[in-house]
């Protein structure tokens, strides 16, 4: 099967007022790729959660940082790369050990990481010295992407 990679990207400031823009950007790309309503919504939510974590943790709420969102579309693979130049943080420390305990004891942190893992096929992190921090979210289409034939 021959395939090509199509890449689009968008940069936003590290501010929560940018989340709506990034959701619209991702939703349009997901729908163009062939995802339906539910899958598109799930992808959008996962990206929102990843960007929110970057704003709150990597940039500690400062609105002056940059977040670069790059979408790679290849074959049946739809991958979103979210890069930042903020503080490196270990997302695993945000992971809820027990969801029920989390919900009943007012511990809000970590829900986003949990959701990202539930909603996407793959969630990967890359923290390399001298390179931007990177979160990669991947979802696979159950059928060949629109406009791409074997």
């Amino acid at each position: 099967m021959s395939s090509y990679t199509e890449t689009i990207s968008k940069s936003i400031r590290s501010s929560t007022d940018q989340l709506l823009d990034i959701r619209e950007f991702v939703e349009q790309a997901a729908r163009e790729f062939g995802f339906g309503d539910e899958e598109s919504s799930n992808i959008v939510l996962a990206v929102d959660e990843a960007c929110t974590n970057v704003i709150k943790h990597a940039y500690a709420g400062s609105p002056n940082g940059e977040i670069r969102v790059t979408i790679l579309r290849e074959g049946t693979r739809f991958q979103i790369q979210i890069q930042d130049h903020g503080r490196t943080f270990d997302p695993e420390t945000l992971r809820p050990p027990d969801l029920k305990q989390q919900l009943t004891h007012y511990r809000r942190g970590g829900l986003g990481v949990y959701l990202m893992r539930r909603l996407m096929d793959r969630v990967e992190y890359a923290f390399r010295p001298g390179q931007p921090n990177e979160v990669r979210l991947t979802k696979f289409l159950a059928r060949p992407a629109a406009g791409q034939r074997g």
């Binding site: 959701r23 929110t52 919900l103 004891h105 949990y114």
Partner: peptide, 16 residues
Amino acid sequence: TYISSAGLGVFMAYIE
């Protein structure tokens, strides 16, 4: 029309 975990967290913050 839309909710993320930040919104869900508000309910958790006040329910107790």
